[in-house]
Amino acid sequence: MKPKSLPLGNIDHEPIRIRSTEDLGAVLKVRRKKQKMTQSDLAALAGTGVRYIVDLENGKPTARIGPAFKLIEWLGLEVTIREKKID
């Protein structure tokens, strides 16, 4: 099984396009590890369960969005939506 890589972009320097739950999970996992947090640490901070963190990081498509926004905030990230550019 090959390790997941980030979608195109660099989380520290430019926006990353999220096209799937797998993309979101990969970004959150990289950010959590960069901050040297365990899944348990993040779950405690965000007030959610470790199972939810595991599911989200693994790209579970039915993961609830509300807790995901809390995790995004705790990881020092933000979500921005804009109109898609058509080339």
Rank of each mutant, 00 (worst) to 15 (best):
A26L: 06
A43D: 00
P67I: 10
K33M: 06
R82D: 15
R51H: 07
A68N: 07
V50N: 03
L75F: 01
R64V: 05
R82P: 09
R32Y: 06
A43H: 02
L45V: 01
E14A: 11
A46T: 12
P7R: 01
I86S: 08
S20V: 02
L75N: 05
R32G: 06
T21M: 10
I65S: 10
Q39G: 14
S20Y: 01
D23N: 07
L75H: 05
G9Y: 00
I16M: 12
P15Q: 09
L24T: 09
T38P: 15
R17P: 00
E73Y: 05
L45F: 00
T80A: 13
L8N: 13
V79T: 07
E14N: 11
L6I: 03
W74Q: 08
E83C: 03
E78S: 15
H13G: 07
I65D: 08
P67Y: 14
L28W: 06
K4N: 05
I72N: 04
T38A: 09
H13Y: 12
G66T: 09
N10Q: 14
E73R: 02
L42G: 03
R32H: 04
I86R: 04
R17Q: 11
L28D: 12
N10T: 13
L42Y: 08
L28R: 04
A46V: 12
G47V: 12
V50S: 01
P67G: 12
N10R: 13
L77H: 02
R32C: 05
R32V: 01
R82L: 07
R17W: 12
L24N: 09
R64N: 11
M37R: 05
L24V: 10
L71Q: 11
V27H: 13
E22Q: 08
I65F: 11
P61Q: 01
Q39N: 05
R19M: 06
T48Y: 00
L77A: 05
K29L: 15
K2P: 15
T21L: 04
R19E: 15
E78T: 14
G47A: 12
D23H: 07
A43S: 04
L45H: 00
K2N: 13
V30M: 08
T38H: 09
R82W: 09
T21D: 02
I53S: 04
D55G: 13
G47L: 04
I65G: 02
G66A: 14
V79I: 13
K36N: 02
N58E: 02
A44T: 09
M1P: 06
K85T: 14
E78R: 15
R64L: 13
